[in-house]
Design a protein around this nucleic acid. Structure first.
Lengths: 229, 229
DNA sequence: TCGAAATGTTTGAGGACCCAAACAATAGCA
DNA sequence: TGCTATTGTTTGGGTCCTCAAACATTTCGA
């Protein structure tokens, strides 16, 4: 529907405004500037321009918001962003930071068809846990970074891959809770989902679903190899 | 090694110069302009700037070339471009046009790690033909575009996927050659590789490897379903 | 309530692109 | 060897994005 494509910068502003306007603080000039790593004066100019294009609502010194049209564009971009990041982390097994970095730039040019197929490929792999494990094992061994069979923290485990708990380095509190949930050496555990910012992490163990911080997950030592189901 | 990242535009100019300088005509201002869809005057300015940055060799009205530094950048970008396009066509099963469109924009922001993992994932799938067939079947049925079991031209078959020849609509010439090669209804056939521009297509049948034009491949009607090995 | 302090805007200026039109050089033909 | 057609460059102007510095407003503590 959008005849004239917006510039990547304009898309960045809209996406940032959308994200910030969901916080209690709202979208403020200074926060937008900090998020995009530009000066506040640049944001003022950008807001004026977005307003003229009918994309943002804005009164000087006042609140910044999006028009329905602006919100539509912003949600589209934000959607591409999460699709890419999800593919990079969950399917390609990259770190949150690396995924964020690449997604940030590629979101402006990824076509709907590309995003769609990436999603389908991820679903295809996840739908078969043994296959997913094989793939992650293959890519991990390819670069010799963290070969399967080697111990790591639960936080480093790709989502959907099952691993065996080998130990827990937690002093107290969490340890007790985990033991009550049945997280003891020998049981199978999997990361279900990692929040967009890498924290918290949704974990599945013995049919329980629990949520924990990344730092806590790092204390749970696991070992995995392909074919673990 | 490159401290200051070049702009996407500068990268586009370098990539185009590299590509054109491999043709007998060489890289000429007008051709660069046509390739990038800008006016020749814009190219003149760009060349002057690239020269100042030590990336291009250029004398007014003379030949355009790349310095070692410029060539290095251009080859890097060209490499990202083909990596992405290959992933989009061979792994995601997109058309050459769609892949080209997306690769063109995304090449500037795809990180080495992302490209590397995409390549590994493609290799992982291709290494098991049955798995590759399952994936392509899954994605084709997901959108109901070309469900497995349905007849199509050999040109539409994703590389690596085996299919059964059901017929050949060729008048003469090629038909005879194909029959001699053993391409008759009932035999298994696969596309091995598609050239970057979609033509020609390398085909594998009964251990033979043959090359044909896309238009010719379209005349070979095939039917495929997951699990065909 | 009445100033700082924090925050936001304007202004002026520059870089990176782009174009159209005027101008210059080259190539190829007579 | 000229002369024209093609090709390439310069010039002048515009947009978008950016900044620093000067200015305005709002917020908040005393």
């Amino acid at each position: 529907m959008r005849i004239e494509r917006l510039s990547a910068k304009a898309e960045d502003y809209l996406e940032t405004i959308l994200r910030l306007s969901e916080t209690p603080r709202g979208a403020r000039t200074g926060d937008i500037a900090a998020a995009l790593d530009v000066q506040p004066s640049t944001v003022s100019a950008a807001l004026k321009s977005l307003k003229e294009q009918g994309l943002a609502e804005y009164t000087p010194y006042g609140a910044v918001g999006l028009t329905p049209k602006g919100r539509q564009v912003a949600e589209d971009i934000a959607g591409r962003h999460v699709s890419l990041r999800r593919f990079f982390t969950e399917t390609l097994g990259l770190s949150q930071e690396e995924a964020e970095l690449a997604a940030c730039g590629m979101e402006h040019d990824a076509t709907p068809l590309v995003l769609d197929r990436m999603g389908l490929l991820g679903d295809f792999l996840r739908q078969n846990p043994a296959l997913l494990g094989q793939w992650h094992a293959a890519r991990a061994t390819a670069k010799g970074e963290r070969a399967p069979g080697v111990e790591s923290g639960l936080d480093e485990l790709p989502p959907g891959v099952r691993a065996v708990v080998v130990g827990i380095d937690v002093d107290s509190g969490l340890r007790k809770r985990l033991v009550e949930m049945g997280v003891t050496p020998g049981v199978l555990i999997a990361v279900e989902r990692v929040a967009p910012l890498g924290d918290p992490i949704a974990v599945e163990v013995r049919g329980y679903r629990l949520s924990m911080r990344k730092a806590e997950a790092a204390r749970i030592r696991v070992k995995w190899r392909p074919g673990l189901i």
